[in-house]
């Protein structure tokens, strides 16, 4: 079964498609730093910039998965460093509950990942993207919650 699956994937040349929802003040700047420092990271992420992680409606994450993302990465400022003081602290609660709930219903935990990357951590951003891409690649294409039309 597994072999058939991998064959299918390689035949199609499947590459994980990852949506990275990042905050404007830290992670986006971190990604920018990774870029200007010419740090290589996999081109599998599509970055969506939002003002703050606290602005992210958990529905964005589910909607991304439904519309064909293989994984969703959410990243913002480290706790205590939020541009809006507490945006990421409320976000942390939202995502903790969401991630647990998604695992509960049987969705793979590694499809939705949350992390913090600050503006000075270009290196960490590249590492995160590498890690996330590997994790999602190991899971294979998304099968659950996906709209098939």
């Amino acid at each position: 079964m597994e072999k058939v699956m991998t064959e299918k994937q390689s035949a199609k040349g499947w590459e994980p498609k990852i949506i990275a929802i990042v905050c404007n003040w830290c992670t986006y700047a971190g990604a920018d730093l990774a870029g200007i420092s010419r740090i290589q990271y996999p081109p599998n992420v599509r970055i969506v910039r939002v003002p703050c992680t606290g602005r992210i409606n958990p529905f964005y994450i589910l909607k991304a998965l439904q519309e064909g993302a293989d994984g969703v990465l959410v990243s913002g400022c480290h706790p205590g460093e939020c541009h809006y003081i507490t945006g990421n602290l409320t976000a942390r609660r939202k995502f903790a509950a969401l991630k647990r709930f998604l695992s509960y219903i049987g969705l793979e935990g590694d499809r939705t990942l949350f992390t913090w990357v600050s503006a000075s951590e270009g290196d960490r951003f590249a590492q995160v993207v590498r890690g996330v891409t590997d994790a999602v690649r190991a899971l294979g294409p998304a099968q659950k919650l996906v709209k098939r039309i």
Partner: peptide
């Protein structure tokens, strides 16, 4: 309401750490 509030020491064990893998 719990999702409208926060504590500084809320649990963070779900945060992805690229060094440890997950």
């Amino acid at each position: 309401a719990p999702l409208g509030a926060y504590r500084e020491n809320d649990r963070e064990d779900f945060i992805f750490d690229p060094k440890s893998g997950a």
